[in-house]
Design a protein around this nucleic acid. Structure first.
Lengths: 224, 224
DNA sequence: TCAGCCCATGAAAATCCTCATCATAGAAGA
DNA sequence: TCTTCTATGATGAGGATTTTCATGGGCTGA
């Protein structure tokens, strides 16, 4: 489970990160608007903690960017004051929850858990792309109502590509997502080729072709 | 994020700076030993890139100076040769990571990211437990200075257990950590048994026993 | 003591990663 | 424009790792 903490007060961000790491989440941090935007452009998170008061730009624009990218990341706004306008604006722009500072870390933990759970078990967890249907909580894939059995990595790859549809994802980013390890950004990424190939093969055998495009020298893309 | 590049080859320093600036870091450069010392005396950096072969003084002395000043700056050594002695000396003197020339800029970027992140989370890079030594960036484990080869999951498990030493970790938490997937909190966790068993076996074959305790009905614990 | 759950273990199956080889896109130059 | 060259991607096979499964032993509470 990956969390992005968008927060410019370093001490707060760090104590949140420490707490969440203890709770077995993987955390990343962004301290500025630009940093936040570049991270959400590249990666996907299970939950994003968003401070609305950011140096370099309005936090609400981060929400708009998420929406524009059609990202499914859960978002919890953490705002300096319990401003009703902020709350309404935030929830309206696509946030999943709202938490006013100061808050207890355990409360934050509970909210995160609930956002992720809602995302996982809610109705929005079935992706449908023409003849392709993906039930994320159940980890099942159907093509024209016939089941296709994918391995865990293949399934992850598929969901990740679709979650970033029409955008090229670099091989390194795919490698990192699949291995869950930043260190693997460094080594060789041959295994990505293998998973792409196997996924393409299984999908096309089921009659679902031409979605995964190779962007030579850049990565792969789900095109729709 | 501020980076100090201590490197006398001007072209290399410049191309690193250009790359890192693109990645939204602020860069400063030092081309000589004296220049480096005066900069670290005055300023603090999120990460320092240190070439050990410097005109005017040994790069390791820069590390000693940092230590003397009790600075917390992260340090990545970029060494002309892939010399084991350099690595060991560097890491012992307080560097956070090392990188042998020539390297890809993206690799450097990943290491910087990881060093900064680790600093934020307060983790260190080499764990030592009596006869057991773990080099996290290199993913190497030694028992009484003899290498032990662990698989990725075994390594992850070991680091996670030690990172929570003297605390019982539930099987579900271990399962989630190893699989990187919250959904696996629900299913069966038999594979944890297998990894625990294999890790115990490899460690004890190397002469490192009795650290991993089973807490019946509750989980496992690294006891020290 | 005994029942019932929990863990340990070995082996087999499934999955994943690596490696060597081949194919192809894009770049560079004629 | 055509050819050649180089880096990148595709592919299949093999080995390594991970996960599952079945069986047996041990802990704990009644």
């Amino acid at each position: 489970m990956k969390i992005l903490i968008i927060e410019d007060e370093r001490e707060l961000a760090q104590s949140i990160a420490t707490y969440l790491t203890d709770e077995n989440y993987r955390c990343e941090m962004a301290a500025t608007y630009d940093d936040a935007i570049s991270k959400i452009d590249i990666y996907s998170y299970d939950c994003i903690l968003l401070d609305l008061m950011l140096p370099g730009g309005d936090g609400l624009k981060v929400l708009e960017e998420l929406k524009r990218l059609q990202k499914q990341d859960g978002v919890i706004i953490i705002s300096a004051k319990d401003s009703l306008e902020d709350k309404i604006a935030g929830l309206h722009t696509g946030a999943d929850d709202y938490l006013a500072k100061p808050f207890h870390l355990s409360e934050l933990g509970a909210r995160i858990y609930s956002v992720i759970r809602r995302k996982q078990f809610g109705n929005s967890n079935i992706l449908q792309v023409n003849e392709l249907k993906i039930d994320i909580p159940a980890k099942k894939v159907m093509v024209s109502d016939k089941p296709v059995t994918l391995t865990k990595k293949e399934f992850d790859l598929l969901v990740f590509l679709i979650g970033n549809k029409n955008r090229v994802i670099s091989k390194a980013a795919l490698a990192e997502h699949l291995s869950g390890d930043m260190a693997d950004m460094l080594d060789n990424h041959d295994f990505v080729y293998a998973h792409i190939k196997n996924l393409k093969k299984k999908l096309s055998e089921a009659g679902c072709t031409d979605y995964i495009k190779t962007a030579y020298g850049m990565g792969y893309k789900w095109e729709q």
